[in-house]
Design a protein around this nucleic acid. Structure first.
Lengths: 159, 159
DNA sequence: TGAGACGCGCAAGGAGCGTGCAAACGACAC
DNA sequence: GTGTCGTTTGCACGCTCCTTGCGCGTCTCA
């Protein structure tokens, strides 16, 4: 865990909201000079506290109409089989997130697709037939209440 | 759905990977001049195809050790009760994503927490006692295979 | 008390940004 | 074929923004 003070937290929080903030804008928000913000930002990038910057694209504007959560059970739990499944998941760009979980299913995937045909294709033609997979259950997202990847920095005390 | 050509797709794809790319770098990647990339980027921002830019922070480096998926069933399905629940969800920064789904549960939440105590607090002291909530089941993430919010732009034909 | 380390703001040189402008291109009508 | 209009492009220029060097103030510890 990397030491981070109140200034860093302000900078991180601001960049989480707007990743293209100017050093001067950052300076105004954090109560520092622009040069100092530049230096701190560079340090946070080098330490990989800031992992990267990404544009957030509108799925609606680009015609991705379906989001689905897919629960997957593996055929066997051998290391080889897990590895096969992970390779498969990595290859599929429609899968944005993939986790192994405690509880019923072995894995949960979150996928973004143009339409239900795309989901059907993913589930029935790609996942189901794969040798590593035993069963699949998908749930379609009806409504998005919230969708971000912001960390709750306010939970942090400056260290 | 907004018209987007091959140049736009290259720009969007590049900015999805690195949101702080320079117009000149964008120009090299897309095969255009820097000024033209600037103009196109501004257009895409105005049209809200680009919804924003965000720094991606390392949860490990910042000491967030627990990710959990929480399935929630509402007490009743009245509009009032849904609204109460949505307000609750919006207030809680630890909840990054929240969706209503087809299938068993009414809602799925994804939460990021410092430790299991934080999860226990969220589930037992915040969600469970809330009047809108009937039952809660949480699954802890054991492993992250993939975690991004990149759209599969290669699925798109330039229009 | 003094020396070293650290973090700060300022200033300057260089890089990047966006607007104006004229040329190139494509579509369409005649 | 040819003329016209609208769109898109690259280039140039003025302006903003970025980063690095420098000197100053503060804190720590011997």
């Amino acid at each position: 865990m990397i030491p981070v003070d109140t200034f860093d937290l302000k900078i991180l929080s601001a960049l989480q909201d707007d990743g293209r903030l100017t050093n001067q804008e950052l300076a105004d928000l954090a109560g520092l000079s622009a040069s100092q913000c530049s230096r701190r930002r560079m340090r946070l990038e080098e330490e990989k506290v800031i992992a990267g910057y990404h544009a957030d694209l509108s799925s609606e504007a680009l015609g991705f109409g379906v989001i689905a959560f897919i629960q997957v059970g593996l055929a066997t739990h051998s290391p080889d089989n897990s590895k096969r499944f992970r390779t498969l998941v990595n290859r599929i760009d429609e899968i944005q997130e993939a986790y192994s979980l405690t509880g019923d299913a072995d894995y949960v995937l979150k996928a973004v697709l143009r339409d239900l045909k795309g989901l059907s294709n993913l589930v029935n033609d790609v996942l189901m037939p794969h040798q590593s997979v035993a069963h699949v259950r998908s749930s379609i997202v009806l409504d998005r209440l919230k969708e971000s990847s912001k960390l709750p920095l306010k939970d942090l005390k400056a260290g």
